Amino acid sequence: YETDHQDYCEVCQQGGEIILCDTCPRAYHLVCLDPELDRAPEGKWSCPHCEKE
């Protein structure tokens, strides 16, 4: 299903190369994640907010 994702990072509120959560509309820079990621994850990815739930 399609979600309207943010076009900015949930953490720093800036645009650029962001990865999109497959569960919610949030988006993140790899370096803004904690722990940060070296590269975009393959397959489905859930953001830290969704992982907690």
Rank of each mutant, 00 (worst) to 15 (best):
T3R: 14
K52T: 12
L30E: 08
V11T: 15
Y1S: 05
E17M: 14
H49S: 11
E2R: 09
I18D: 10
G43F: 05
K52S: 12
H29E: 00
L33H: 08
Q6S: 03
Q14Y: 03
T23A: 04
D7F: 04
P41L: 12
G15S: 06
G16H: 10
G43N: 14
E2K: 15
K52V: 04
I19C: 07
E36P: 11
W45L: 06
D34E: 11
E53Y: 01
Q6W: 04
G15E: 06
L37D: 06
Y28L: 10
A40Y: 04
E17H: 00
V31W: 05
C47L: 00
G16N: 14
W45I: 06
V31Y: 05
K44M: 11
E53M: 07
E42N: 14
S46D: 08
R26M: 09
L30M: 13
L20D: 12
Y1T: 14
R39E: 10
L20T: 15
Y28T: 06
C47F: 03
E51F: 06
D7H: 11
R26D: 07
L37K: 09
C32S: 01
E36K: 09
C32A: 00
W45C: 07
G15T: 13
E10A: 10
T3K: 15
D34T: 05
R26L: 14
I19E: 13
E2T: 15
V31L: 07
K52Q: 04
I19M: 15
C32D: 01
D22E: 05
Y8L: 15
T3I: 11
D22L: 07
L30K: 09
E51R: 06
V11S: 15
G16V: 09
L33D: 01
Y1H: 08
V31P: 03
G15M: 13
D22P: 09
C21A: 01
Y1D: 06
Y8T: 09
Q14L: 08
I19G: 07
S46W: 10
C21N: 00
T3Y: 13
P41V: 12
V31Q: 11
E36L: 09
Y28E: 03
T3A: 07
C50L: 03
H29N: 03
Y28K: 02
A27W: 05
L37I: 07
E17Y: 11
S46E: 09
H49F: 06
Y8V: 13
E2I: 15
A40D: 12
H49M: 01
D4H: 08
C24K: 00
Q13T: 11
C12T: 01
E10F: 10
Y28V: 05
P25V: 01
I19W: 05
C9F: 00
Y1I: 15
D4R: 06
C50Q: 02
C12H: 00
Q14G: 08
Q13A: 06
D7I: 10
D34G: 08
E10Q: 13
E2G: 11
P48Q: 10
D7Q: 08
P48E: 10
A27M: 06
G16A: 13
A40P: 08
P25Q: 03
D38R: 04
C47T: 00
P48H: 02
Y1A: 10
P25L: 04
A40W: 04
Y28H: 14
E53S: 03
C32I: 00
L33Y: 08
P25E: 13
G15D: 06
H5R: 13
C24G: 00
W45A: 11
D34W: 01
P35V: 12
C24D: 01
C21T: 04
Y28N: 04
K44Y: 03
L37F: 03
W45M: 05
H29M: 01
P41S: 10
P48W: 04
G16I: 13
L33A: 09
E51N: 08
E51L: 11
